[in-house]
């Protein structure tokens, strides 16, 4: 099986099976565009640490997909889900970088997994908490913010309180 090298923005090389690397549609299309003899694919938007984590996902999912014959579809899905659940237990900062990398590298399964992970983190939280959680900057003008606060007031009221009314 052919191996290729993925080079992170900070110059770290990762040797990976082409099959696993091609779970990333970005890498796949880069490989198609580059000459056939090319072994090194530069990824200027992903750092070493995040790339390592992305490749862990790609390698694991490729390995599980390949086990077509020895386990049933249901068992394979269950195994993948259990692995995914453990895999996505990362800090919010890591999750932020992972979702950005999954988006840039276009790994649909990983992107969905990260989005679900983020949704689980922000469910039930206030806008301020979400900002703090991901280090996002509030960039509204004062009148705009007041308008948003008024429009979204219903969402800030406790759900159970609302149901009682």
């Amino acid at each position: 099986m052919r191996s290729i090298i993925l080079r992170s923005c900070d110059g770290a090389d990762h040797v990976v099976a082409q099959e696993a690397a091609c779970l990333s549609k970005t890498v796949q299309s880069l490989l198609e565009e580059l000459e056939e003899s090319t072994l090194v694919v530069p990824l200027p938007n992903v750092c070493d640490c995040t790339l390592r984590k992305v490749l862990q996902y790609c390698t694991q999912h490729t390995a599980l997909q390949r086990r077509v014959t020895d386990i049933s579809d249901e068992l394979r899905t269950r195994e993948m889900e259990a692995w995914d659940k453990r895999y996505i237990m990362v800090s919010t900062d890591e999750l932020y970088h992972l979702v950005m990398a999954a988006h840039y590298l276009n790994v649909p399964g990983l992107l969905e997994l990260c989005c679900e992970g983020i949704a689980n983190l922000i469910r039930g939280k206030s806008p301020e908490h979400v900002r703090q959680c991901f280090g996002l900057v509030k960039n509204f003008e004062a009148p705009e913010e007041e308008n948003i606060r008024r429009t979204n007031l219903w969402a800030l009221v406790d759900e159970k309180e609302q149901a009682k009314k």
Partner: peptide, 15 residues
């Protein structure tokens, strides 16, 4: 897609 309308409305006020 993973959030309720209420949760999404809260997130809409983030940025």
């Amino acid at each position: 897609r993973y959030l309720s309308a209420r949760d999404w409305a809260r997130v809409a006020g983030v940025c």
